[in-house]
Design a protein around this nucleic acid. Sequence first.
RNA 1: GGGCGCGUAGCUCAGCGGGAGAGCACUCGCUUCACACGCGAGGGGUCGCUGGUUCGAUCCCAGCCGCGCCCACCA
Length: 803
Amino acid sequence: MELEPLYKPHGVEERWQQTWESEGLYRADAADPRETYVIAVPPPNVTGALHMGHALNGSIQDALIRLHRMQGFNTLWQPGYDHAGISTQAVVERELREQGTSRFELGREKFVERVWEWLHEYGGIIMGQFRRLGCSLDYERERFTMDDGYVRAVMRFFVHLYERGWMYRDNRIINWCSDCRTSISDLEVEYIDVDDALTYARYPLLNGEGSVTIATVRPATILADVAIAVNPDDGRYTHLIGKEALVPVVERRVPIIADERVDPSFGTGALKVTPGHDPTDFEIGRDHDLPELTVIGFDGRMTGDIPPEYEGLTEDEADELVVHWLRDHDQLEKRESYRHAVGHCERSGTRIQPLVSLQWWCDMKELAAPAIEAIESGRVTFHPQVQNRVALDWLKAIRPWNVSRQLWWGHQLPIWYCPDGHVTCSETEPDACAECGSPELTRDPDVLDTWFSSALWPFATLGWPDETPDLRRFYPGDVNSTAREIIFLWEARMVMAGLELIDDIPFHDVIIHSTILAADGRRMSKSLRNGIDPLDLIDEQGADATRYGLLRMSSTQDVRFSAQSIEEGRRLANKLWNASRLLLLGGETEPALRPSSLEERWILARIDATRAELERDLDAFDFAHAAERLYHLTFDDFCDWYLESIKPRLTEPDVRATAFAALERLLKLLHPIMPHVTEEIWSHLPSRESRLIVAPWPRSAAEFAGDLNALEDAQTAARIYRRSGVRINVSGDAKRIFEAVVRPAENGQGDVGAEQARLSKEIQRSEKMLANEKFVANAAPDVVEGERQKLAQYKAELDALGN
RNA sequence: GGGCGCGUAGCUCAGCGGGAGAGCACUCGCUUCACACGCGAGGGGUCGCUGGUUCGAUCCCAGCCGCGCCCACCA
């Protein structure tokens, strides 16, 4: 094969991806007795396409998987998809709308069929895109949160919780999205600052003169008022507690009650209580046994026991009408502009409507306790560590989870009702009501929150609830890597579910990776059009460059996308390619460790030291430093010093054999991050016993450790020569290296004076420090000793310059 | 309102108690027979501001200014 001077990833990468997969090298086998290393991929939405977050996370997980595969672990990287209830349903509904129909016209059964059809046609493309990134997932194991086995796991989980007594049905206030037409969990509500008007309305007091004024941003909800509440310690109002007031418009008599949840400093200090449409009011209402009136329906329009002119109005229209009424009746005190945070559905962007609704809830307290213990004891650790606290704070303040969704796409609740309203909970369809034996059963139409099934991912993908060999072998897993925003939605719930159902944590380490922001520092988003498609990067620069770049720019915090980092990766791939060409163009030689000189032992020591550092980096999930380290090992150590220094001797068989052996090790270290170019080069090397992807990770080479500083004399001589033009005396190995590395052309640009001045300055600084008695007395001995050595070094170099 | 984090070279970021670093960009010199997607040399920073601790502070502490994220039922 012709080795061109420019490495072209296109074609090469696809070829290796196909080879690796078709040779079964991604496969994990439960019968393989070696120690396991397991990662379950965060299942992407089945409707989605690869974005920057997936690409970074894929690079992270694949680096870990490939490292451990080479280290001899039985590695499993589990692939699959999430059915993504709301967004998938929304995608198909949009298509139906475009076709002039709707899911209601189709009916539930037909609609669900339609979703499956849509998915078969357009869904599930990301695994192909992960392949293009070079991700070594065991693709034959692909799972879907809606496949038959998985549905069984979800049903089992629900029934388990029901039987535990943690799953209950209750009329409570929920977050209603009138666009998605479903409730959503607290975690899916996004608070956005909104400019509203704060309306001050006078409520006349009954049996007496005067009125009490309340402030509200939602005048329409006045129609559902059932009380006025004041803080018991608010002296302005204590005399009113126990009295009654008249609600405007509907002229309802309501009590004035005391509750410490009322903030005296807000508005007038008097709160209109609307349990049907406000979470705080709902709590107050429950504690004071107040009725829960509803005046806004699931469609966002006015409804219920209201004056006829309000029926069917939108909330905004009703607001206006109420304000008119107040003005007409001289009960409008004032309106002022008011900016505050209002909950919106993070998916549709619609303003959340707090509504009282009959829903299924999961009490999380007892599930959370073992998860808290697991994190506090360190059995599960988040990286970076600060996230442990974040997760713990949430778990310790955990609230009931509204798990039912008013959708058609998802896992329908395993709940049946008989005509008498008895509840039967069963994994499979029951014949009769568990309580009264009635055969007339109706299944609850709701489906479960998507995250309910996601919580089972680490073990449902391995066959749970069956005791499969895979489950026994590959559970618990090792690592889970994900974005920060799903710590609560997913990570915490996987830990809870794993501990509850299998009595063991699902993984030991959770990597919370960077969010890659656009170059302008904002989130990448479709609407802002500031996103970058990772597939474009792969096409333009190659998967290796993309992987390297993403890891290089990653951090423990959010980062701006850096095109330069990807570019750096491309140059690294090209550099490796050309370094290999240098050796290969001289003909094949069997790799063998036969170092006969200082510089040869030195590069082996450098590679080994980098191996150890790299292992530490990856162990700490510090991918940026891992990438940086490999870059410098390749460019500086391997190419600029080692290859340059042995070039004149590249015809000697032992030098060549050693160089190939050193290159082998270099390729191995780089493979987890840049799998394709390394495998490609590897395939050109003589005597390959296996693919690089499954080649053994280099063992530590302690025998070369003593040669780590071996190059120093030659490096000092070269540096002085290049800067000053002065050739200082070196001998032996150092002289040979010097001659090989320094080119005659570099002569003539040196400036002796500048170099002398620089050294003199350093000497001055060092001498001043050492003359400080307090420094010598107080500083750590090794620091003082180090400073003395530096001074001696500077002086020696200055002497060498002929001073 | 509570919590967390960040402000270091033109850009993107490391460093986090003893000489201010990397990559890119910039300047200069090299058509060196692996690579000009290269090699060598260099310019560029009061390390957000103000105090404090220390022999010594970019690094620790306090306060301030600016930016970001998360959590939270203030109508």
